[in-house]
Simulated scan of single mutants.
Amino acid sequence: MSEQAPYADLTPDLVLDAVTACGLWPDGRLLPLNSYENRVWQVGIEDSTPVVAKFYRPGRWTDAAILEEHAFAAELVDAEWPMVAPLALSGRTLFHHGGYRFALAPRRGGRAPSLESPEQLEWLGRLMARMHAIGARKPFEHRGKVDRATLIAQPMQAVMASPLVPPGVHARYAVAAQRVDEAVAARFEAVGPVQTIRLHGDCHPGNVLWTDEGPHFVDLDDARSGPAVQDLWMLANDEAAMDSLLDGYEQFRDFDRTQLALVPALRAMRQVHYAGWIASRWHDPAFPAAFPFAGESRWWEQHVDDLHELADELGAG
């Protein structure tokens, strides 16, 4: 596999062959699903419902980390929590084929939740509390953390090394990102120690599928250890929405409300990480096609201004 095109060899035929090697019988129907970090396909199966095949980005996670993700998903399902977990075939959930690692999951449909609905937000809050109670049982051993090293330092390095950033913006970016880093560090220090647990890690509305029976959750690809509020803030558009989430959450689990002061820091970390993620993946042809704005000077200039605003919001000097 080429480092310049990590999925260059992932052809439709290879996808079908990989699923067949797991003992299933594809009927030839393939539908690529929206995913940039990995490659995900819906695969039709003869005389059965389709499955979703997720091919992991080479080199991102170790096998041990992926299996820990799968084990967490299985633990949630065993507790009757609505997680779409990988299928276990012949006792395995992680498969290898043609130089790629992949997992299969049942296809589950749904729509995005309404983040303006207090009822739906309370429902989500109750579910997140149950998930966090399970997540608090034991730590991750092989997966990452919600920390500055992962979400600020590494993305900063990727941006500074990227040809995407105009020469005249490099120095300004370095100053802005450093201000954010210092402000985030100060905010975490001011809040003090908080409990870290196993999290979904990327619990935005696109990873919640709502049906008439209620929601279910997908994609633990970013599961990592961190504070509980990390799984809440992306579902709350404003203070009222967070109140609704917590109304549901606290029916099942105590919530340390001092963590709410971390939300601006977590938002800032996500902004830094987003730019670094695009910069580090630009060699993947899917990224220039999906994020063409990152090839324009004005986007990086606006990103620098946004980082300064985030630092100001956090009270940086």
Rank of each mutant, 00 (worst) to 15 (best):
W210I: 02
K54S: 07
A289R: 13
N38C: 10
R101L: 12
F293L: 13
Q157A: 14
R108L: 03
L104H: 01
V159N: 02
A294S: 15
A129R: 10
D284Q: 11
M83R: 10
P155E: 02
H273A: 04
H303T: 14
A286M: 11
L262N: 02
P113M: 14
E296V: 06
E141I: 02
R126G: 15
W25K: 02
L121N: 04
A186K: 07
G144D: 07
E301W: 01
V77Y: 03
L31D: 09
A88E: 12
W299L: 13
E309K: 12
F55Q: 08
D13W: 00
G226H: 04
R111Y: 04
P113V: 15
A311H: 03
Y274N: 06
A112R: 15
Q251G: 13
D238C: 13
S35T: 08
Q259K: 02
A174W: 05
R107N: 09
V84Q: 03
D63Y: 03
I197L: 15
G226R: 04
E189V: 04
H303V: 09
Q4W: 00
R29P: 00
M234K: 05
G192K: 02
H170N: 06
G315K: 09
T258Q: 00
G98H: 07
A79Q: 15
Y249Q: 00
A311E: 02
Q120G: 11
V229R: 07
V15E: 04
L89H: 09
D9M: 06
D254K: 05
T62F: 07
A65R: 08
H142T: 08
V208H: 07
G59N: 04
A73Y: 07
I197P: 10
R60D: 11
D202K: 01
F255E: 05
L199F: 06
L121Y: 05
A286R: 14
A5F: 15
N34D: 10
H200Q: 11
Q302C: 03
T62L: 09
Y274R: 07
D231N: 09
W123H: 12
H200A: 02
A18M: 13
P12D: 13
W210D: 01
D78R: 00
I134S: 03
Y56P: 02
E189C: 07
E122F: 00
